[in-house]
Design a protein around this nucleic acid. Sequence first.
DNA 1: TAGACAGCTTACGTTAACGTTAACTTTTGA
DNA 2: TCAAAAGTTAACGTTAACGTAAGCTGTCTA
Lengths: 140, 140
Amino acid sequence: MDKPDQEKKEPEDAFTISALAEEFDISTRTIRFYEEKNMIFPQRTDGNQRIYSRRDRARLKLILRGKRFGYSLEEISEIIGMTEVDFDEENQIKKALKFGKRRLAEIRERINELKLLEQDLLSFQENIKTRLDSLNTSPK
Amino acid sequence: MDKPDQEKKEPEDAFTISALAEEFDISTRTIRFYEEKNMIFPQRTDGNQRIYSRRDRARLKLILRGKRFGYSLEEISEIIGMTEVDFDEENQIKKALKFGKRRLAEIRERINELKLLEQDLLSFQENIKTRLDSLNTSPK
DNA sequence: TAGACAGCTTACGTTAACGTTAACTTTTGA
DNA sequence: TCAAAAGTTAACGTTAACGTAAGCTGTCTA
């Protein structure tokens, strides 16, 4: 009863646009829009329909992740564009490295800021709890 | 030579709109816009000019921080609105607590996602370095 | 084999978050 | 004191990131 997974006819590595849309809970329009913006490049079938590889899917995931912490599509393009650099020249590589360091620094800053907000909210919670207690201790 | 700081005539707790704009590197229009959206409520002078208290300033800071991790102004309004709840009723307090818990969970999730991205970028960096090394080890 | 349904392109519509301009008033510094 | 700098309201403009609708084609299934 434990056959290797093989449910549909999809070659395991190809996704339709609607499959991805459902998986990530976005519209097909959104996915096509990202393509318009040259952020993702699916192949086409004979009938001109888009087919997304596992790699395309990963890229889409990255885009959405970027969005979730407030990067604009343009910034995301830069970030993921970085992962596509041609490794022809050493210089290119070094530039990519440097760029990556900046990004890393930014991300760590964001993490720290979020932790700050977390603290803000936590102390606020404490504040509320105290008030609640005093309400119950000395009612009316 | 170490007199207590006292440079201008500002009562140490009042800020002009342009002072805040400069401090946070945003436009005065932006600050007024937040007021339009009922996110901040400065007092007025006799001449009808806005004066911002230390508290207003903190709030502005919060708004901007929220923006930096991708919250919309509306979401930010909810978050900071929470810190303004009237503590009239126990029920209100409990609601605020619950709401805060959700927000905290969200924020922690964001932190985790960011750490994920950090890892992605880090391993990518390693990848690049390796390539760079092999370039230098076996040149041409 | 005919619907029904998924997908495609094109194009116009919408909303959030300000930018910009105009026309006017208040504040400030030499 | 008086002109420049800073502030005010009102209104229209702009851009990113999609939503929506139309008109057509390709694909699946009973």
